[in-house]
Nucleic acid binder design. Structure first.
Length: 172
DNA sequence: GTAACGATCCTC
DNA sequence: AGGATCGTTACA
């Protein structure tokens, strides 16, 4: 039985949640009522204030406030003045962690993903456990995956830059 | 108020 | 290898 995943699923540590998202369905209901579902194939973990690649390492700000919420809400922000990034907040309240959804089946690249799904700033703070327009469903399939360092965070220093916190589903 | 900086993508 | 393009942040 496929159904929306609940709060408990998201309140785990981000290093557990990020790989667990692989193979799950990201379901999006657009304005016309059309429902589409996308299989998640690539994620990255951003883990707390000590992680120099994570936005909260620069302090708690209006932008990053949502990451301090309980897991299951979305953190959406703009990079390079162009691309919206889709992140799923992880961990418990006051435990700022998030998973960047980098790709789904058929769409690679986090910027292209949000464009295809019509995700913008209005989704910031959206609750995956309650929202009528976006949620996650379990498929019971956990694909094999590989880990690599995260992308585009060269500024964060070698310790954090080299953490193997990018999770990419591998073809069977 | 101002200036610098990107968790990217596309085109050379 | 480099440019697009603008919200967020840090500073004065």
């Amino acid at each position: 039985m496929i159904r929306r995943v609940n709060r408990i699923f998201f309140t785990r540590d981000v290093l557990e949640l990020a790989p667990a998202l692989l193979g799950m369905h990201l379901v999006r209901v657009c304005n016309t009522g059309d429902r589409q579902s996308y299989t998640i194939t690539e994620t990255e973990a951003y883990r707390g204030e000590n992680d120099l690649a994570c936005h909260v390492s620069k302090g708690r700000t209006a932008r990053t406030e949502v990451m301090y919420h309980e897991g299951g809400v979305l953190y959406v922000y703009l990079v390079y003045g162009i691309h919206w990034m889709l992140n799923i907040v992880s961990g418990r309240k006051e435990e700022p962690q998030a998973v960047l959804v980098r790709g789904v089946q058929g769409i690679s690249g986090p910027g292209r993903l949000t464009k295809a799904l019509g995700i913008d700033k209005s989704f910031n703070g959206e609750d995956l456990c309650e929202s009528p327009r976006i949620w996650l469903e379990n498929t019971g399939i956990t694909p094999r995956y590989k880990t690599t360092p995260r992308i585009g965070i060269d500024y964060s220093g070698s310790i954090w830059k080299n953490k193997p916190w990018r999770f990419v589903a591998t073809a069977e």
